[in-house]
């Protein structure tokens, strides 16, 4: 039987920085294999070493120890020039999009092709194809400053794909985007992975991102690889402290309700209560605790009242109140209902 070679191999990878005389161990002895066609998530808290790790994959950062093997090429054995050549086949997108602000969308997408020495008419053709893939055909002549965050990230994705790379590295690509836009960008990445067969490495600090699109996940904690495996296995049965911290910290199901603010909402038959509460939770992306409910469903109309305990975060709490008020609910804040 023929063993399948991994596309990306991190072997005993270590990275140290010297900063003001002190040595910072950003990565320590990381061993990781990523296979062709995977959507591989790398998750960890801020400062865990995720960006350093992803920058080592294309040697933007030279590892202090160990090496990276891409498609059988040991990067530490390649010359500077060979590495630049190789980078042309690895797309990368970033949290802050990093578009050239003085170039329009089309010229941004053409930039990697310019570097690769592709002819102008071919570049133009390719950028039109890519704009179609990311759904921005009408924005070819716009400048980045005229686009929304989600649109900018789409341009960045198109740019990263222009040279037909085998690998797409994403460093917190959705962290600057709102939930709806995040969702659409993740769908786009999934589609790209399926249609073009590109291997995607996703760096994030958000569980939800990994849950949405990754097949496999590695957890990085304090520069070390804490755990790796299939997303279901790692998330349903976290074995290490680091994994548990991440899984539970990010998971709403075990979030404690510590908020002191409570509201009474009255159903006067104008609405059906189930959609109102469910929609509010979906819309506000938060939890409420139902402390008391006395409601009747009469021919699909809701009558009665309900007392909700709001989340501790006052912005979230206000969001809930506003949502309910905007949906014509009678909302009354209760003082000292819980203590």
């Amino acid at each position: 039987m023929l063993a399948i070679e991994p596309l990306i191999q991190l072997i005993d990878l270590g990275k140290e920085y010297i900063s003001q005389g002190a040595t910072i161990v950003a990565l320590n002895d990381i061993n990781l294999e990523i296979f062709s066609g995977d959507i591989f998530g790398i998750i960890g808290m801020s400062g865990a070493g995720k960006s350093t790790l992803v920058r080592c994959i294309n040697f933007l950062e030279k590892p202090t120890t160990g090496t990276v093997v891409l498609d059988g090429n040991d990067l530490s054995l390649l010359s500077e020039k060979e590495i630049r050549k190789l980078r042309q086949n690895i797309g990368m997108i970033f949290q802050q999009f990093n578009l050239l602000m003085q170039r329009n969308v089309e010229d941004n997408i053409c930039f990697p092709l310019e570097i690769a020495g592709v002819k102008a008419d071919e570049r133009k053709k390719r950028s039109q194809e890519l704009l179609e893939i990311v759904g921005l055909s009408d924005k070819a002549k716009s400048y980045p400053s005229q686009l929304s965050g989600g649109q900018k990230q789409r341009v960045a994705i198109a740019r990263a794909l222009s040279t037909n790379p085998k690998i797409l590295l994403c460093d917190e690509a959705t962290s600057a985007l709102d939930p709806t836009t995040t969702s659409s960008i993740l769908s786009l990445l999934k589609e790209i992975n399926k249609k073009l067969g590109i291997t995607i490495v996703i760096i994030t600090h958000e569980m939800s991102v990994v849950e949405r699109i990754c097949d496999k996940v590695a957890i990085i904690d304090n520069g070390e690889l804490a755990e790796q495996g299939s997303v279901e296995n790692v998330f349903s049965n976290p074995k290490t402290d680091a994994a548990r911290k991440l899984v539970y910290h990010n998971n709403n199901a075990v979030m404690e309700m510590k908020g002191k603010r409570c509201i009474r909402i009255v159903f006067d038959g104008k609405s059906s209560f189930e959609p109102v509460i469910a929609n509010m939770i979906l819309e506000c992306r938060t939890q409420v605790n139902i402390l008391f409910a006395d409601t009747k469903d009469i021919k699909g109309k809701a009558f009665g009242q309900m007392v909700l305990q709001l989340p501790e975060d006052s912005i979230q709490a206000d969001k809930i109140i506003n949502y309910l008020k905007n949906n014509k609910m009678i909302v009354e804040e209760l003082i000292d209902y819980v203590n």
Binding site: L60, F94, Q102, F111, E114, I115, A156
Partner: peptide, 24 residues
């Protein structure tokens, strides 16, 4: 970040100077 993006595309130093630093 823009410079880093250009590096990730395999741009050489002269290319970065002429096509990123100066135009931006």
């Amino acid at each position: 970040g823009v410079i880093e993006a250009a590096q990730s595309m395999g741009a050489s130093i002269p290319t970065i100077i002429l096509k990123v630093l100066i135009p931006e």
